[in-house]
Design a protein around this nucleic acid. Structure first.
Lengths: 225, 225
DNA sequence: TTTTAAATAATAGTATAACTATTAAAACAA
DNA sequence: TTGTTTTAATAGTTATACTATTATTTAAAA
């Protein structure tokens, strides 16, 4: 059974919707693989074109530059996590259980539950962990935020903050805790792999149960349960 | 009274110690200003040379590339924060008070207490907030970590983790909490300025008391006091 | 004090990356 | 079948990253 989720992303991010053509879908598919492989700094449209047997100029017809392609991938990821949270909390009432599911979604958005055949969510998660923040740590952030490029992230955090307030309506920092849980998840998976002295947890091959346990502990302590 | 702190940084980061010549000190001074002004992506050695009335090739004699210059700046910052913490906790016994001072150092390492005339610590802090993580979110991280380029960060976190364990010897995540307090400080100052829907705090012109309050609250809750 | 050697900086490049104007080829409609 | 539009490839230009070589300055030795 094929699951159909139409990912709707801000139209300003791309020149042409990559979801609408085989070439466009290939750009998304191969860019995830190539960025994971060589890193965002070394990644460019010429190498991507080689990888997918197309041309540089063709890719430029879909994205103005590699920075906007990264924003596209990151936005896709945010939407995907929001979708995971939505379907997995549909018939859950207990907000504490909801937050557990949210944390599980942050940590292991790499479940083999492909929404589409051209996006490997597990690989995408790896890219987000290593490169995600580069999408919004730039001099263009205010301009791009004004255009709504980070709406998906803000919406996701807003939903999580809502659950946090359900658990503890007097908690002073629902948005900060929500975004921190998300950022911390990615940070500590990265630290465990590359700078282990900056964390206490260990991770195995796509096995992030330590991270999950830690985030649940932090949330419970902070929200007082 | 001039304060003399000799910042000792890993020699592999630079080709020639920039502290040892007027040109080298200018590279550090003007790079901080220029990166803050135009962002790390747009920053390059040609523009830096123009800014300081020198030449591109001369700068390349000090740093292999702009990435290593960023690592130098970030390492300087870590050393500077460690130094601030050290002198301000010298005759403090209460570990809870020590952690307060640590958090204050994370948040406002921008005090007008210049260690050297060629580094504006307040501007450097701005650069770290916006660009700092780009120093270690690259494909070269394992190689560079092996060369000891991030030793200053790990040492800083190790010291903070020690204080955390003084407060609560059974706390399971001393390193994760230490690094999270540091990263969270920079993240939420950035969010407050550029993506305010991702946080609850507000910041003014170099006025970060909200962030400080939040981090103290998080630490107290997590460590159970 | 002059000469020589070493250290330092500037000139003038090359190679690669980022981006675009133009042309060619498909797809579709009249 | 021909004209129109969409899509992709060719062949560039401009800008960035980096380096080999030459020139200049500084310092040491004679």
């Amino acid at each position: 059974m094929a699951i159909e989720i139409k990912i709707s992303l801000n139209e300003g991010i791309y020149l042409r919707d990559p979801q609408d053509s085989a070439l466009g879908r290939n750009i998304i598919k191969y860019s995830i693989f190539l960025i994971e492989d060589i890193g965002f700094e070394s990644f460019n449209f010429k190498k991507l074109a080689q990888e997918m047997n197309s041309t540089e100029a063709s890719i430029y017809r879909y994205f103005e530059n590699k920075h906007l392609l990264l924003i596209y991938l990151v936005s896709w990821y945010w939407e995907w996590v929001a979708y995971l949270i939505k379907i997995n909390t549909l018939n859950i009432d207990d907000p504490k259980r909801k937050l557990e599911i949210i944390i599980n979604s942050f940590v292991s958005a790499s479940v083999d539950n492909p929404s589409t055949d051209f996006v490997d969510e597990s690989k995408l998660h790896s890219v987000i962990i290593a490169e995600g923040m580069k999408a919004y740590r730039t001099k263009e952030v205010d301009d791009e935020n004004g255009k709504g490029f980070f709406k998906n992230y803000k919406q996701l955090i807003n939903n999580v903050a809502g659950v946090i307030l359900e658990i503890n309506p007097t908690f002073e920092y629902p948005y900060a805790l929500a975004s921190n849980l998300f950022e911390m998840s990615n940070n500590h998976i990265y630290f465990a792999k590359h700078l282990p002295r900056l964390t206490d947890i260990k991770v195995g091959e796509n096995k992030f149960s330590d991270v999950e346990k830690m985030l649940n502990y932090f949330a419970a302590k902070l929200l007082g349960y």
